[in-house]
Amino acid sequence: MEIKVLGPGCPKCHETEKIVREALAESGVAANVTHVSDFQEMAMLGVFATPAVVIDGQVKVSGKVPAKKDVLAWLGK
């Protein structure tokens, strides 16, 4: 599983990445997490606002920090 956390590096972006990593640890799901700050890549994905989370090419959330339960649901847990 490939997970991308999109954002310029603001506190909400870091919080989002932390929640994603916590959800992964809780669920035991193996995934490669990367932080994307490149505007061109964000634009290609159609993301209007950050933070955003993309899982296997699917934008799951844009412009807000997700709840951990939402991330767990996206992970299938």
Binding site: G46, V47, F48, A49, V54, V59, S62, G63, K64
Partner: peptide, 24 residues
């Protein structure tokens, strides 16, 4: 505000549609 790509939403591009759903 910020103008956004209606064409992307119209094209059903997943990231554009999700962004429209999530925006404040």
């Amino acid at each position: 505000g910020k103008m956004y790509c209606l064409a992307g939403i119209g094209g059903g591009l997943q990231g554009f549609v999700q962004s429209a759903r999530d925006v404040e």
